[in-house]
Write a protein that binds this DNA or RNA. Structure first.
Lengths: 208, 208
DNA sequence: AGCTTTCGCTACGAGTCGTAGCGTAATGCC
DNA sequence: GGCATTACGCTACGACTCGTAGCGAAAGCT
């Protein structure tokens, strides 16, 4: 979050209710107005707080939207459905459901675009959104290796590269399908995609 | 392009030099300022034209940037390197080189984000950017089937789904690697990626 | 109590937007 | 050549947003 309240203990504390109201108002404004027409004055009005309160907590529109969108990914969890393919399909369908929501569609791509020119923003996105997804990949891979569905990776550097590759392939394909092609990442599509991905990974691990 | 000059033949024609100057100035402004701080007044000054000229040709910032970025993808071609894997690696490296340029990074994602709320803009992006990439996938697939590297697809509906899937996987992975993960899609990464992709596609086509 | 920080409110200069109006320049048609 | 038509450069405009400053009141802690 944006709060930096580890040391300062004295004085009136910041309203936690205002935080949730502001983030909810931001998502509401994203749905109705989209990224470019969203103004902080409008968000403040919707949340029932003063505009100055927004500027005390967030540096600008970018940081606010990152936090508002990041909360959407809180629900993301790796289910245990018995097989690697089923687990991945489950989590990818969750991911696709989040990306189908208009507040995620219009907000996420916009802040990613901004982050190409702002390293601090890129780091904020990595910490609050991307890392959580990456953790799911690591978790699923470890579970699959324990089950014997994927071979163990002795070289840690090679393992890191493989995890990065899987992550970019999964997240990239779902995002591109949803936001660029504009078609739904439904059950049928996810099933085909995961089949190709797993066959490729297993095949690549057999012939190094 | 934005020109609609099929019927109107009389009157002073639009300066073609102004078009190229404006689009070049737009890319220059994208590099220096990024999407959010780019203003049409600034572009007009850089291009040496009046601001009103910009508004006569483009509806707004979105449409202008789409056209400016689209020109970057003109150079994209499918090389003939003897094998499907080599061909794909070649074109993916071209694609990655374009995405590595700052004017593409900051511009492309921004207009895609805007297009989630603007169907006309989405269609413009599809026609001027996405379709060209899709054609490369079709071309490569046909050539590979002719070589026998990929099995022929009797069902046209199934073939269309497969092409869509390949397109989202390739473009999505490269874009995600470059813009979200922030790491270069260099030769080593592309090689690993294509290997997984092709092994998966061949494997999936064998066990339908 | 006293101290500290946050809150809501108002106001402000600076900057951008998109458009209108004007006189001038460059074409095609007669 | 003259005429209609369209594009161009320029200026100016109201409306809007931005981010900040200053104020008095409120809400905690010691």
């Amino acid at each position: 979050m944006q709060s930096r309240t580890p040391a300062s203990r004295t004085g009136r504390p910041r309203s936690a209710a205002a935080d949730t109201a502001i983030l909810a108002a931001t998502r509401e404004a994203l749905v109705e107005l989209g990224w470019s027409k969203l103004t902080l004055s409008d968000v403040a009005t919707r949340a029932g707080v003063a505009k100055t309160t927004l500027y005390r907590r967030w540096a600008g529109k970018n940081e606010l939207v990152v936090d508002a969108v990041a909360e959407l990914f809180d629900e993301l969890e790796l289910p245990d459905l018995g097989s690697l393919a089923a687990d991945i399909e489950g989590v990818v369908l969750q991911f696709a459901a989040i990306l189908a929501r208009p507040e995620a569609r219009s907000g996420l791509m916009a802040v990613v675009a901004e982050s190409t020119r702002d390293d601090a923003l890129r780091e904020r996105i990595r910490a609050s959104i991307v890392d959580r997804q990456m953790r799911l990949v690591l978790q699923g891979r470890a579970r699959a290796q324990h089950r014997g569905e994927l071979p163990p990776e002795p070289d840690p550097e090679q393992a890191a590269r493989t995890v990065d590759l899987i992550f970019d392939m999964v997240a990239g394909a779902v995002v591109h399908r949803t936001l660029v092609s504009g078609k739904p990442a439904d059950g049928e599509w996810v099933h085909s995609f995961i089949r190709v991905l797993l066959l490729g990974l297993v095949g690549a691990s057999r012939t190094p």
